[in-house]
């Protein structure tokens, strides 16, 4: 890991900063959140000890995209927790009485279990083709091309199956 590579990502950040900000504004719809995410991106780019990066620009976009999704996920978890616990119950996670980490761990384990149960149930109710494509792509990690070969269908056929699966799971998770 040479210093060149480490400063590489940071240097790339300097080059693409403006367009990354534009991306984050478009992605979040919120200029100040975008700035905040950009700052976080910069910190991570600095810390990261990456090897040589083939396509640094795409790499930074992907990092930025991941930061946005992490925040979304965190926000969604928080909303579920709040809906669960603060409305009808007298637990007071926000007040900080209980050792927050451990308490949170228990809750998150419960949420995770519920999500898993929902997903398993939804997957078994998928149409056979969509289920197969979903299992091969998302659970076994095959690419779309590999799924297409495995199932003997076209790549666009795989995409259609995946769209059916993801929309169905979305509905199951949202309900």
């Amino acid at each position: 890991m040479s210093p060149d590579n480490e400063s590489g990502l940071e240097a790339l950040y300097g080059i693409y900063r403006a367009e990354l900000l534009r991306f984050l504004v478009a992605r979040t719809g919120d200029a100040s959140e975008a700035e905040d995410l950009l700052q976080e991106l910069w910190l991570r780019a600095r810390q990261q000890n990456t090897g040589p990066i083939g396509n640094g620009r795409a790499y930074l976009y992907r990092m930025a995209q991941n930061l946005v999704v992490d925040r979304l996920r965190e926000k969604q978890r928080r909303m579920v927790r709040e809906r669960r616990w603060t409305d009808q119950e007298t637990d007071f996670a926000a007040a900080g009485v209980e050792p927050a980490d451990r308490r949170r761990t228990t809750e998150e384990q419960m949420l995770a279990r519920e999500e898993v149960a929902t997903l398993v149930s939804a997957v078994t109710n998928l149409p056979a083709g969509a289920r197969k494509a979903f299992e091969l792509h998302k659970l076994q990690g095959l690419s779309h091309a590999e799924v297409a070969a495995e199932l003997g269908i076209s790549k666009s056929g795989v995409e259609k199956h995946m769209a059916v699966a993801m929309k169905y799971l979305r509905r199951a998770l949202l309900d």
Partner: peptide
């Protein structure tokens, strides 16, 4: 993206 994140997170368990 959220559905995708939930699926990826739980893929092994599912």
């Amino acid at each position: 993206a959220l559905v995708n994140a939930v699926v990826e997170e739980h893929a092994p368990a599912v």
